[in-house]
Structures are given as C-alpha cells and as structure tokens.
C-alpha cells in the first residue's frame, strides 16, 4: 500500500517506564475514515498523541505522505496537515468561540481562505455562529465538541485525528456529530482517524477499523466485516445471545491472538 496518506509502522510508546503501545501498525488512505476501537486504557489516545507528536515513540516510524514525522514537535506536524481534536475537547475557555476558531487557523496567512473556512464551519455547525461572541468555557459539552472539530478544520487538514468525539454527549447529539463528521469527510475530502469507545456508531461511520487491546492490534478489517463478527458484536456492540457474559468473555478473549 504505497498510496497511504498516513502509515504507522510498528510504533512502541512509553509513559515513563510503562509501555502503552506494544507495536502498532495502521494505515489511513486519502479520503478514508479509519476507526480505532478499544476499551479504556487500550492505548487509543496514545496512538493519536504519538502521531501528532506530543509523545515520541521509542521505536517505529510514523509516515505522513512519505515523510517520517515520528519525532517532530506537534506544531510542525500540524503544519504538515494533521489536525488533532483532543479528547475532552480542550478549548480555550476564556477566548470567544470566534477567537478559538481563528486560533485553529493560526499558521495560515491566506485571509480569504480563512474567512471562507470560517463560513464553512458555521455552515456545518450553525450553533457556533449564534454563539460566536461567547466565551468557549460557557458552551455546553456538545457545542464545545463542535467547536473543537471546527477549530481543527480551520487548520485545513488533510488528516483529522478525532479522539472520542462522543465523550459525554447525549445519544441524539452523538448521531448529529457523526453525521457531520461523515459529511466533512466526503465534502472536504479529509481523511479521518477516529478513536472511539462507542463502537456501534464508529463502525457505522468508518470505512476500516482496527481493534486495540492493551497496546496491540487484535483485529483489523472493513467495518462491515468487523460488525458481522461474533466477538466484536459481543464485546464492543453489546449484542449477545443468551448466556452469562462474564464467563464467556474470558473464554472468548483467549481465542484472540
């Protein structure tokens, strides 16, 4: 696969002495939505942080458009066209919504392009336009998520890293946000690497999926195929036939790897 936009090649990342990622490889093709599923502590966020340069991998390579970005600082990675929507939104609470968005375009100099992208964001999320002069810290959780996504879009990314966009949102809002994520992907031709705990909606939104467990990839396939698999259905989609789940979970888990 030489046409990959992003290729993560057997990276290993540590938090001090603790190894969070034990050799992960994944590919994102241009214009594709790829999702990484996994439970708490599986290492999903660490993968994204390693890509965006906040963490440096001990071993392995991160190739973006054929360039190794594994040990680059995050502001340079961003300038190459990778925008990160961090977990927990991380807006600038005392800046207005509009100022937050303008910060997303900090590295850009084309004021006409910035203005049209601002228009685009307001198009996707009209709520942000209504609240553009309010401080971001006063927005609701869903609005802050919209803001975080829009702020990343303002950087005109070719790859968007989305970390748990469903976190703490109502089911209805999750539906809305994911349909807009899909629209952004098709309309703006932005590739998306999506990390999610909400596997049901992630699998429905994405094209290709990886399943992560304690720092390793245990399954990788098209989302349609993944959704049809029994183990995925049981552990990540919460659908199971009759029977006691606790015992079966352990038995089934052994079968992976």
């Amino acid at each position: 696969m030489s046409e990959s936009l992003l290729r993560v090649d057997s990276i290993e990342t540590f938090y001090g002495p603790i190894q969070a990622i034990r050799g992960i490889s994944l590919d994102v093709a241009p214009g594709q939505i790829v999702t990484v599923l996994g439970a708490n502590g599986a290492g999903k966020t660490t993968v994204l942080r390693t890509i965006s340069g906040v963490l440096d991998p001990e071993r392995g390579r991160v190739m973006f458009e054929g360039k190794d970005i594994a040990r680059m600082p995050p502001d340079q990675v961003m300038q190459l066209g990778i925008c990160h929507v961090p977990e927990g939104r991380e807006t600038f609470p005392f800046l207005t919504v509009r100022e937050n968005l303008m910060m997303g375009a900090y590295t850009r100099r084309d004021s006409a392009g910035i203005a049209s992208d601002l228009e685009l964001c307001f198009n996707y999320f009209p709520r942000l336009q209504e609240r553009q002069h309010q401080r971001a810290g006063l927005l609701s959780g869903g609005e802050q998520q919209m803001l975080a996504i829009s702020r990343a879009l303002m950087g005109k990314p070719r790859l968007l890293l989305l970390d748990e966009p469903s976190l703490g949102l109502s089911p209805l809002l999750v539906q809305q946000i994911f349909s807009i994520i899909r629209r952004i992907n098709t309309e703006q031709k932005v590739a998306i690497l999506l990390v999610e705990q909400n596997a049901a909606i992630a699998l429905r939104t994405a094209d290709f999926g990886y399943v992560l467990e304690v720092g390793r990839i245990v399954a990788a396939d098209d989302c349609k195929t993944l959704m049809a698999r029994d183990d995925i259905r049981e552990f990540y989609l919460g659908q199971k036939e009759a029977g006691e789940r606790g015992v079966r979970r352990w038995k089934k888990k052994r079968m992976w790897n």
Partner: peptide
C-alpha cells in the same frame, strides 16, 4: 496542549 495542536 491545545495551543500546540493548533500549530502555535
């Protein structure tokens, strides 16, 4: 952290 992500 968010400022870093914005390329600042």
């Amino acid at each position: 952290l968010a400022a870093y992500y914005m390329g600042i």
